[in-house]
Design a protein around this nucleic acid. Structure first.
Lengths: 356, 356
DNA sequence: CTGTTAGCGCTTTCAT
DNA sequence: ATGAAAGCGCTAACAG
């Protein structure tokens, strides 16, 4: 008899305590039928269907996803690891991920992982939560050997993984990125075409992958323009406004200061503009500034920022798409896609005033 | 015999497939002991402890949080519902939430819910995932009656909930907010003290709670300064740069345009500055602009934005703290806290040029 | 079209 | 200090 079922008494507080057993009993069917109806697998007669629906409504039944996941071995959770959600570029990626993940019925978990150690710890925790897949972005100390190893191992053990703008940790890990090398080259070419000859670069920490593509593109652009790349023209920064200001002071203090500064991202560029302006210099009259990312504000400040647009949201969407595909087809061939960057010339760049 | 245990064969791909049964067998103890060791409940002899650790390492055991949560009825998941993570203010809140949640061993899930309908759907899904608690921010159509009702019901059924800058939906729902009313009043008082007499306000959609506090403070400030509050000086916007530009055109087209514009947030203010500048007007010489939020860029653009600082990150931290406390003590008394805002006077506001 | 019955992996009394 | 066993709520064969 159905009446002889698991304890029907003692409804806990935190959750409603109504299970498919209660629903089944009330509807006069078996749990299997209720289960079938809930996830639309198998046939359920019209009559039963109606009774079950009525029972669920009356009982205010809420399916327990934990139990479901335990048996199906799918949590419908995916994770995105970011350095800092507060960074507009990261936020855009997150937005793109959210949109496609949620649309597909997955819940995206966004985590902050400042450095490699935290990243590892976080991935472990996430793994215990049985997330179906994970998206990685560059982290401080990315090249940490132990880190790479552990991540590699997770991939081996079947964790779906996609690397965003980051060197893939495993042949099975899919990869999406933007062509930062090409973007940086574009920026430098633009500046060189304008007539600049002393073009500086403020990057991120070079221990991180993120800055390397841009540094490479910067050098390549310089090279193609037949310009020298003196070492004092390249600075390491922290990707934020403050860092932009700080490095600008250093650059301006040079015996031969640059006539143009290319920045690793827009936040840095804003700091640079602030510092430059504070020194009484005018942009772009006295010095040209080019950023990277094209965050929403870039075109709205004065002077409007010339920058290299990265399709951040698209990047997020693509990452999520790849991840979902990999989850569905663990053995599908490796995917890799690099999105082009585009130069957005605005007012912060112009021809040099005196001898470039 | 322990040997006669659940199937030890067929290791699935997606997860390692190693359970505490495997660990127990290898360590020569019972699963109960392994369990005790894992979550530090009950005594475990030094000898067993050692053997268990060795077994876990050798087998690369990864605890299954799903199974754990199923029995403990705690998922250690909390959710934050945001309108748009791309908004810097929201991002700051998210950051604050993340910091305290992760530190406490909880995983925060950040979801986008543009309107009331999506919000409800999302809350339901989250509920099925058995999140331990949920943090709500204002949503388009917040006052939707059905919405409030359902949320109320969830609260009744024991879902821990805290409302951020939003009218609490239930006497058991905790509440954190910033004093936007006071902040807006501060802004208007500042402008009035500077000598402005025609002060406009660009708000959000007034169907949302978010704009109401500011609108009230704006009116109160005007009132205290003995200034009129003509209806054409109040505009509804969308909280972004574009909207700021659009509403500015309308304001500037007035027979008696304002000499100062107070904006619902900094993004709007940036749009306003762009629009005003595009018209050939200078800030603050011809028109003063005051924003709200003090996002990181506010102080770095030219002219540096005068704004009302909201402690966004702190708000997030507090929300998470409240939520965690409520999860731990479901019957603790209701908590409510409102954080003060602070005026940050910079360069975008100054005395009016001609007859204010 | 529907019911029975094993688990999924872990926690937790209750004994020992 | 440790073991045995009963669930947690749901899905998925496997019979009818």
């Amino acid at each position: 008899m159905i009446g002889d079922m698991k304890q029907v008494t003692s409804f806990g507080e935190p959750t409603s305590g109504v299970t498919i057993y209660h629903v089944a009993e009330r509807a006069g069917v078996s749990v299997a039928t209720v289960s079938r109806m809930i996830n639309g697998s198998g046939y359920v007669g019209a009559h039963s269907r109606e009774r079950i629906q009525a029972a669920m409504d009356a009982l205010r039944f809420e399916p327990n996803g934990l139990a479901r996941s335990l048996t199906t071995k799918q949590s419908e959770l995916v994770a995105l690891l970011l350095t800092d959600i507060t960074n507009p570029f990261s936020a855009q990626i997150a937005r793109g991920v959210q949109d496609v993940a949620q649309a597909a019925g997955y819940i995206p978990i966004i985590c902050s992982a400042d450095d490699a150690a935290v990243e590892l710890k976080t991935v472990r925790t996430l793994r215990h939560k049985r997330v179906d897949g994970i998206m990685l972005t560059p982290t401080e100390g990315e090249r940490n050997a132990e880190n790479e190893l552990v991540l590699h191992e997770f991939c081996d053990r079947g964790l779906a993984m996609v690397c965003i703008g980051r060197r893939p940790v495993h042949p099975h890990a899919d990869e999406v990125s933007t062509d930062t090398f090409g973007g940086a080259r574009l920026a430098v070419t633009h500046l060189a075409a304008l007539g600049h000859r002393r073009i500086a670069f403020i990057g991120g920490r070079f221990s991180r992958g993120i800055a390397m593509g841009r540094l490479g593109g910067y050098r390549q652009g310089l090279d193609e323009a037949g310009l020298p790349a003196p070492v004092q023209m390249v600075r390491e920064g922290d990707l934020d406004e403050e860092s932009g200001q700080r490095e600008t002071w250093a650059l301006l203090a040079l015996p031969q200061p640059p006539t143009a500064i290319f920045c690793v991202n827009d936040r840095t560029a804003f700091g640079v503009i602030a510092a430059v302006t504070a020194q009484g210099l005018r942009v772009p009259h006295d010095i040209s500034i080019v950023g990277f990312d094209d965050i929403p504000l870039a075109g709205l400040v004065a002077p409007a920022l010339t920058t290299v647009r990265q399709p951040a949201q698209e990047l997020g969407r693509l990452a999520a798409t790849f991840l979902l595909e990999r989850i569905a087809h663990p053995d599908a061939p490796h995917q890799r896609s690099v999105l082009p960057c585009e130069l957005v010339a605005r007012q912060s760049s112009g021809p040099p005033s005196a001898g470039g």
